[in-house]
Amino acid sequence: DLSALRVEEVQNVINAMQKILECPICLELIKEPVSTKCDHIFCKFCMLKLLNQKKGPSQCPLCKNDITKRSLQESTRFSQLVEELLKIICAFQLDTGLEYANSYNFAKKENNSPEHLKDEVSIIQSMGYRNRAKRLLQSEPENPSLQETSLSVQLSNLGTVRTLRTKQRIQPQRTSVYIELGSDSSEDTVNKATYCSVGDQELLQITPQGTRDEISLDSAKKAACEFSETDVTNTEHHQPSNNDLNTTEKRAAERHPEKYQGSSVSNLHVEPCGTNTHASSLQHENSSLLLTKDRMNVEKAEF
């Protein structure tokens, strides 16, 4: 173990290094160091905050020279020094078990990766560091076993998940096959086929009936047209017969005018059967003409 005197000496050296690497504005270890034209180094955030307070150039807090945003430059070497100082402080805390008085939040800088452990060898070769390295080497064999167990647990979990997924996939297939086998029997399929065939026959029977009705309507229309044509021909046949009657009536009127007047009046009210309204109107006109002729003949006879 380190003596108290040596611990104090190391602590004083760390404090001196820390004062050199402090920012003059925030009085902390410089984060993202930036250098000016006057070779003074500050935190990048502190300098941008200072420049944004005034429009135009501002003055350096140490030498009062003008500073602009374009004049600022990043210093990589200074950032490396800060990183190495942080590593020294971490090693000091691990070796002594004491917390550094002016320690900052170094938890963000710590890294437990194997590459980081290899890099620590180049920091300080001390008894405390050696003991700590031995402890780490002793704890390393235990870690692979834990990793193997965790991997086995994960693989077993994956296997159970896969088996569950396969079961879920197989179950719908089985149910679907069961439904297909038990849903419709052979008799049901035959009945469905016969039902479809009967429906098709009914459709075939319905369509000819409609065509037959249309044919019957067409035949009825044709018969009505033929009947009207026969009526017209009958009226045409009746007209010459009426003319013959008129000639006979004229002759009778010349011989017996008194008797014919009474008979002509009675004939006005008689309509021949089986004739249309057109034929009756023609008869009325003929009878009126005959009456006028008879009157003329009677007057001539009187004179």
Score class of each variant (00 low, 15 high):
Thr248Met: 07
Phe45Glu: 15
Gln53Met: 15
Gln80Glu: 12
Pro61Thr: 02
Glu22Asn: 03
Met17Gln: 01
Phe45Thr: 15
Glu110Ala: 03
Val161Pro: 11
Leu21Pro: 00
Asp244Asn: 11
Ser280Leu: 14
Arg251Ser: 09
Cys63Tyr: 00
Leu86Trp: 09
Ala252Phe: 07
Arg132Gly: 06
Lys19Pro: 00
Thr166Leu: 01
Gln125Ala: 11
Tyr129Val: 09
Ile25Asn: 01
Glu142Ile: 13
Ala133Glu: 00
Ile41His: 03
Leu155Cys: 10
Glu8Tyr: 08
Leu21Cys: 14
Arg135Lys: 13
Glu74Ile: 15
Leu203Tyr: 11
Gln18Pro: 01
Val121Gly: 13
Ser35Gln: 07
Glu302Asp: 14
Cys63Lys: 00
Ser113Asn: 02
Glu258Gln: 09
Gly210Ser: 05
Asn105Lys: 12
Glu8Thr: 08
Glu229Gln: 10
His40Phe: 00
Gln147Ser: 10
Leu5Cys: 07
Ser122Asn: 04
Gln239Phe: 06
Ser35Trp: 05
Asn246Asp: 15
Ser75Ile: 15
Gln80Arg: 09
Ser241Arg: 10
Val298Ile: 13
Thr36His: 00
Leu203Phe: 10
Lys108His: 15
Gln53Trp: 04
Gly274Leu: 12
Tyr100Leu: 01
Gln201Leu: 12
Ser263Met: 09
Leu51Phe: 07
Asp218Trp: 05
Ile25Phe: 01
Cys90Gln: 14
Lys19Ser: 02
Phe78His: 15
Val82Ser: 12
Phe106Asn: 07
Glu32Phe: 03
Lys31Glu: 09
Ile123Ala: 14
Gln154Ile: 00
Ile41Arg: 03
Ala16Cys: 04
Thr233Leu: 12
Gly97Asp: 04
Gln59Glu: 00
Lys222Glu: 11
Ser266Ile: 11
Gly274Ala: 08
Ile41Pro: 01
Lys250Pro: 14
Asn131His: 15
Cys225Arg: 06
Leu2Trp: 07
Ile88Asn: 00
Glu120Asp: 09
Lys31Ala: 04
Asp188Ser: 05
Leu282Tyr: 14
Lys49Leu: 02
Pro144His: 11
Asn246Phe: 11
Ser113Asp: 14
Ser156Gly: 10
Asn243Leu: 05
Ala252Ile: 07
Ala16Gly: 06
Arg169Tyr: 13
Ser197Ala: 02
Val34Leu: 04
Lys54Met: 00
Thr36Asp: 03
Val161Arg: 08
Ser145Leu: 11
Asp39Tyr: 07
Ile170Trp: 15
Gln209Val: 07
Tyr260Ser: 12
Val265Ile: 07
Thr211Ile: 06
